[in-house]
Design a protein around this nucleic acid. Sequence first.
RNA 1: GGGCCUGUAGCUCAGUCAGGUAGAGCGUCGGACUUUUAAUCCGAUGGUCGCGGGUUCGAACCCCGUCAGGCCCGCCA
Length: 535
Amino acid sequence: MHWSDVIAQRLAERGDEHIIATGITPSGEFHIGHLREILTGDMIARAARKAGLKAELVFVVDNADPLRKVYPFLDDAYHEFIGMQLGSIPAPDEHGKPDWARFEQDGWNYGDHFLLPFLEALKQIGVQPRLIPNLESYQNGFFTNSAKRACDDPEAIREIIERVSSRELPETWFPWQPLNSKGSLDGISVTGYEFPLVYWKDEYGVEGQSDITKGEGKLPWRLDWPAKWGFNKITCEPFGKDHGAAGGSYATGVEIAAFFGHEAPTPLVYEWISLRGQGAMSSSTGNTVGPIEALQLVPPEILRLLIANSKPNKAIEFDTGMGLVNLADEYERLASRDFEAELADDSLSRRQRVQVEDAKVALDLSMVDPEHQAQSTAVSFRHLALLAQTKPTDEALMGSLIDSGTIHASTAALEDRLQRMRSWITSQHFPEEMRISILSHPNVESMNELTQDQRNLVQPLAATLKAVDWTAEGITSAFSNTAKELETPMREMYRTLYAMFMGTVRGPRLAPILVNCERDVILELADACAALIDN
RNA sequence: GGGCCUGUAGCUCAGUCAGGUAGAGCGUCGGACUUUUAAUCCGAUGGUCGCGGGUUCGAACCCCGUCAGGCCCGCCA
């Protein structure tokens, strides 16, 4: 059974209506790693609906969390905002400086700044969750009940956290973090409490009070999380392995939620995504690939497949090079399979059957629109990558595909893919081994590897090339006529051509590529190769 | 110190929950298509299932131990 269906089954045992939560702190650029959180949630919701349950996906925006430090992409001016809540400080402008104008005019804040592009990407990917901005939840008093219970009995909370996480809390610990005289959550000590007010003194010696019903502060993370499970009625939540470890915030959350008077959501712990060869993704170090950036390279279905096809507890190494090619081709293969026919085969073993079923579910989950059936574009990514490099215009490329009988007519899906392919090819992510490059100087090593028969082709070919029209047909005729004259098989001719022009043993069809190159440059290269043979 | 995850073919991983003769894709090699879109099609190659014990008629799978890698027990998806 597919992992999403396993969770759906668990949810079915729990009840008929579900709210599946995801939550992210908008402290910096969103990246592919965050996509796993939200896509995992989305796929659980779809699986639950498939199982006949009512399911809604929500996205808790943790904009009540404080700015922890001045990240590399921020101006030093952000020093004054450390400890302040992301939803109440100005967003950085293009230079990383606080954009006061927009903040004061229309309340454009730090959290919004990073959230919006992510939501845009999510839309393209087919995920449109209900947003729950956490800061507003505090300000609207939704946290009041839980905050009151915690503040009324801090020792009970302390006991749970210390026992479950086996860490000691400082004497001064209090289950509410008030905002200080400068609006920061840092460097403050609680001096007293009488509902709804928490009394405090900050590091500047200023004293004040914080009303827990109005969001003049927040619950520490380990309480904040279980509290919002309650008033948001969360029944299921996928979260990263960092929260899932024994003694982690989910473990304490389960008991704290019970203390608050509600049940913890059904958990699903997922592994992190790292960038191939560069370790974990992190917004703060800038080691990221953003969802928008990824969408410029591949269609959304393929990003969805990455998540759908990996079990949550499996670490994913995101590879924007060959890994992406393989992933995309995997998608094409899946899309062209006939699962109904495969499943109708009675001779399948239990394992084989499971494999086919899971592949089908993974493909279904990859659809941006859950109502749509996957359709194969009939052209593999690998193949398209070649064509896109050899055909300068889309018309030429489609024409060539139609001529070869690969497709009957151009489709929107294919054109969309081609557009992304072209942007991928020009990006830094495109793998070198896929890049077609014509040599500028002869590759001596390759030339030396040629057999005598092959070497004999070089000079006649260089001469013939000069005489033909510089068209694909003309160049092709130069190849075949030269081979015919010397009574050499075409196979040998191609081997020679690739050595001369690309320094390789094999390659893509050469004539269409050469015709797009400068005639004189190619002739010069051919002559240089011929000169090499001479010596 | 305590805990979690991972370890299966050259590579990426299924298969472990319900024990029953080791799977897929990619790669590699060979063949076909006889002017090749590194295309497509066909075939072959390939694994002491990290290691050692135990349970069992039977273990990649269950149990115990052990090694290696990653991670968590402030914050982080």
